[in-house]
């Protein structure tokens, strides 16, 4: 899979840093992600992925450095950023005691979609996922794999420029994970940038480019093929292991 042309940059960070007292959770990371790219954001637990992601989502202010997300500044334009991103967390993020349709209406509604847009979107989404029969069932009654796919579709219901996925496939079987990635590809084809964290190295192979964070710093950043070449490794698993075993920080 070829990376799309790096015409427009969706995310640009320059020496982005987050300091908690003496602890530097994120240490001068510099990277850029192109519009429509699938970018894998890897790192062991405690490497600083979540903190970095929170800064990019407008949930916390950086201590130093610059960053723009969808062209907006993370210090001054957090509200603008929020309108242009979608987010799906590792915890399942739909309401279990709402039906599929009600979840769609709610999340579409808080992003300000009009009733007409909502109707069109729900129809499209339910058709794509093949959930016609379940549309009026409570989300809590669905199998986990379906929930995750639905959560992803809901996270991009407002057609954001970028979607942040924080370990979206945790606890899901390989077949469903593969189907989940089909959704990610489809979103990328529509020009949505996917910023994904994962612990599954097979998923890292699906990304256009990946970065690997160790102890708050980005230690490697390239396409999976180039990284394997560079580290003389057969798989991303090996690349990751070579980098991560040097980590000083535990969980």
């Amino acid at each position: 899979m070829q990376p799309p042309p790096a015409s427009a940059q969706a995310i640009v960070c320059h020496e982005l840093t987050k300091q908690f007292g003496d602890f530097r959770a994120v240490d001068k990371i510099t990277l850029s992600v192109a519009q429509g790219e699938i970018f894998g954001f890897l790192g062991a637990n405690g490497a600083g992925k979540t903190t970095a992601m929170r800064m990019l989502c407008g949930l916390s202010y950086p201590s130093a450095g610059q960053a723009t997300v969808a062209g907006f500044d993370v210090y001054r334009q957090q509200e603008k950023i929020k309108q242009n991103i979608g987010y799906m967390s590792q915890k399942f993020s739909l309401y279990e005691n709402l039906t599929i349709l009600e979840n769609i209406e709610f999340f579409g509604g808080i992003y300000g979609l009009s009733n007409q847009q909502l109707r069109a979107k729900s129809e499209e989404l339910i058709t794509t996922l093949g959930l016609h029969k379940e549309a009026k069932k409570l989300v809590g009654s669905l199998p986990l794999g379906w929930k995750q796919k639905l959560a992803f579709s809901v996270a991009i219901i407002h057609e954001p420029k970028i979607v942040f996925l924080d370990e979206p496939t945790g606890g899901v079987d390989p077949v469903t994970r593969r189907q989940f990635w089909d959704l990610i590809y489809a979103a990328a084809d529509r020009g949505i940038t996917n910023f994904v964290t994962t612990h599954y190295m097979d998923e890292a192979e699906y990304c256009n480019r990946v970065s690997i964070m160790v102890d708050g710093r980005v230690e490697a950043l390239d396409s999976p093929a180039n990284l394997k070449l560079q580290y003389h490794a057969d798989s991303m698993d090996e690349v990751f292991y070579q980098l991560a075993r040097g980590a000083q920080r535990g969980e």
Partner: peptide
């Protein structure tokens, strides 16, 4: 607890 708060905070709401 469910993690939906994060989603809400990331939204423009």
């Amino acid at each position: 607890e469910l993690g939906t708060m994060e989603v809400l905070l990331v939204s423009p709401f």
